[in-house]
């Protein structure tokens, strides 16, 4: 970790330290609304980073990551609602279930050479099937949804994730920071280099002795496990789960936009992406409301146009460009 820090140039260290400090003290000056937006941003940093490990580093396109959010959320919420098992314990089975699904997808895809867009289709198919399945599982409320009840006596039981907005903010902050750190460590590890080799050229990676199947499977396992923890957060933050919402493909897309805009395969891309897109979404909501535009999809159109502009201007993501502009990148001829 020390070498991680030492690898950044002076300016990079200053910027990271300042950003951390700002986020730590943000609740002092932020309204409840701003704090909720910041919480959402940090949540997207976290799940975006999980997806980034798989796509940005290992080069495996998943368009079904909502599956892992949903599974993590449902498993932990059901354990709590039906058996009173708290999320700190419930997170383990939640991760195990999501990882099992990830393993199944990975095994199918990587064993039978389903690659690129076909692999992406497989991930969508799993998410969709699971959504339909959950619509019919009465134990978790089916299509009608699963709710974590509001209980007066449990308020403030932060160890059961029954905390205040402030508590969830700091939890999201810790998750996001941990995800960034984990990515930075993995990116410079042996496994990270194997992933990058596979992403760049699978045949050449194999010729250098890399067990491609194993390395890819590890990527899916790590990514799905991480995402499931995000699902646990989601469940206890929002307290209501609907299959049509959680497993929806739109959810999977929403989760990957941050890393794409920020820059896949970089440590800070998903961070920058989330800090651009989530506030942008909020601004568009209030602007369209102010202008009295009630046309359905107006927000989506503006959002889409903005995305297109960003991707047109900086095709490899905002972060690589920004870090060059700010002189944060290491020099490279």
């Amino acid at each position: 970790m020390i070498s991680l820090w030492g690898d950044m140039n002076r300016r990079g260290q200053v910027v990271v330290a300042l950003a951390l400090l700002l986020l730590l003290v943000a609740p002092l000056g932020a309204t409840r609304y701003v704090l909720s937006v910041l919480t959402l941003i940090l949540y997207f940093v976290y799940v975006g980073q999980a997806w980034n490990l798989m796509m940005g580093y290992a080069g495996q396109l998943s368009l079904g990551h909502a599956l892992y959010v949903g599974l993590g959320g449902y498993v932990s919420a059901a354990l709590w609602v039906h058996f009173g098992i708290g999320p700190w314990l419930g997170v383990f089975p939640a991760v195990a279930v999501a990882a099992a699904f990830g393993a199944a997808i990975g095994w199918l895809g990587f064993r039978f050479g389903i690659e690129g867009v076909y692999f992406a289709l497989l991930t969508i198919a799993f998410a969709e099937f699971t959504r339909i399945g959950f619509d019919h599982i009465g134990f978790v409320g089916g299509a009608g949804g699963l709710f974590i009840p509001y209980e007066e006596q449990r308020l403030g039981q932060w160890w059961n994730l029954r905390g205040s907005q402030l508590f969830f903010y700091y939890l999201a902050f810790a998750l996001a920071a941990a995800a960034v750190l984990l990515t930075a460590l993995l990116a410079r590890s042996r496994l990270g280099y194997q992933w990058i080799a596979i992403r760049e050229d699978e045949t050449a990676a194999r010729a250098l002795g890399i067990d491609v199947f194993r390395a890819k499977l590890k990527a899916v396992l790590i990514s799905s496990s991480m995402t499931a923890i995000g699902g646990v957060f989601y469940a206890f933050y929002y307290n209501s789960l609907f299959p049509a919402q959680l497993f929806d493909m739109g959810r999977s897309i929403e989760l990957i936009l941050g890393p794409i805009v920020g820059g896949t395969g970089t440590v800070f891309g998903p961070v920058v992406g989330a800090f651009i897109l989530t506030p942008l979404g909020e601004i568009l909501i209030s602007v369209t409301e102010h202008l009295g535009i009630n046309a359905p999809g107006a927000k989506a159109v503006f959002f889409g146009l903005t995305l297109m502009t960003i991707i047109y201007l900086v095709p490899t993501g905002v972060w690589p460009w920004l870090s060059r502009k700010l002189g944060l990148a290491r020099r490279r001829p």
């Binding site: 990058i196 760049e200 050229d201 045949t203 050449a204 250098l208 002795g209 491609v212 490279r332």
Partner: peptide, 28 residues
């Protein structure tokens, strides 16, 4: 056996049509 298994035993190869990892530095 698979290419990676053969490589781990101690057989390395180059490709007739070279295929370095294009986006990485020479050192990496």
């Amino acid at each position: 056996r698979t290419p990676d298994a053969v490589c781990r035993l101690g057989v390395a190869r180059t490709f007739q049509i070279v295929r370095p990892f294009p986006g990485l530095t020479v050192e990496d």
